[in-house]
């Protein structure tokens, strides 16, 4: 009798050991086939992920009305022979741009400085043709004293006699913030989601109470087979994510 018990215990121990080894082997195998750390180290992917997280950290909740400030300076493309281009007098208390030199051939690098601009503003620097078409040359960011300096390349355009313009555009927020359209839409849809979840929970709670008492009643006696059948049906329903059930349900309703 004792020997038999010992044998049983040994078999049990062996079974447990085998099971542990099996689980470990499955873990290692799964780890190797699922975890691909090399992909995560790819710099292009990391750049993309950084971009996504940056966007996620700036939620589009509030909106401001914006006001555009355009500051212009004349520029000649190309330089006129012999004579120095006449520059208009600028009011030094207002924002203004200075281009050095203020004329040049296509692709010439020029330096554009801005003065009295709104502090810490950022914006695009455009080239405006005599017909009013604009082409972005670069971007600038203003320091705390309202000054910026950028080096840009003049565009490749047909030579024109009259002055064309460099334009720095700064858009500033005006007035108090307002909820963005996206935030308002989110609120409406969120309420819809809460309503759906609440209704679902109430209906499911009632149905589940009925079924669970039915199952408890039939758990012994003649109706055992009925009980098992319902249990199996519920196990089957639980195994399928509601997302998958939604597809046929859309066609149904």
């Amino acid at each position: 009798m004792d020997e038999q018990n010992n044998k049983k215990a040994t078999v049990k121990k062996l079974g447990k050991a085998l099971l542990s080894v099996g689980i470990l082997a499955f873990f290692i195998y799964s780890y190797q086939s699922i975890m691909d750390l090399q992909i995560m180290g790819d710099p292009i992917r990391q750049e993309g992920i950084t971009h996504i997280f940056q966007a996620l950290s700036e939620p589009d909740i509030l909106e401001y009305e914006t006001e555009e400030l355009n500051v212009e300076a004349p520029v000649y493309l190309p330089c006129r022979n012999g004579e120095k281009p006449a520059l208009p007098k600028t009011d030094i208390n207002r924002p203004y741009l200075v281009a050095t030199p203020s004329c040049g051939a296509a692709f010439k690098e020029i330096i554009v400085e801005g003065f009295n601009m709104p502090s810490f503003a950022e914006g695009p620097l455009y080239f405006i043709t005599s017909s009013g078409v604009r082409k972005q040359l670069g971007v600038f960011s203003v320091d705390e004293n309202g000054y910026f300096i950028v080096e840009v390349e003049l565009p490749n355009r047909q030579p024109v006699e009259e002055a064309q313009a460099l334009r720095a555009t700064v858009s500033t927020n005006v007035g108090s913030p307002e909820w963005s359209a996206n935030a308002i839409a989110t609120l409406g849809k969120m309420i819809e989601t809460i309503q759906m979840a609440f209704l679902t929970t109430v209906f499911a709670a009632i149905l589940a109470a009925l079924f669970s008492f039915l199952l408890l009643k039939t758990s012994s006696g003649k109706l055992r087979i009925f009980n098992t059948l319902i249990q199996l049906i519920f196990v089957a329903i639980r195994s399928v994510h509601p997302l998958i059930v939604t597809f046929p349900a859309i066609i149904f309703v």
Partner: peptide, 10 residues
């Protein structure tokens, strides 16, 4: 779909 699923869970 959700009612079906949560009934089974409940």
């Amino acid at each position: 779909a959700l009612t079906l699923f949560s009934t089974a869970v409940f």
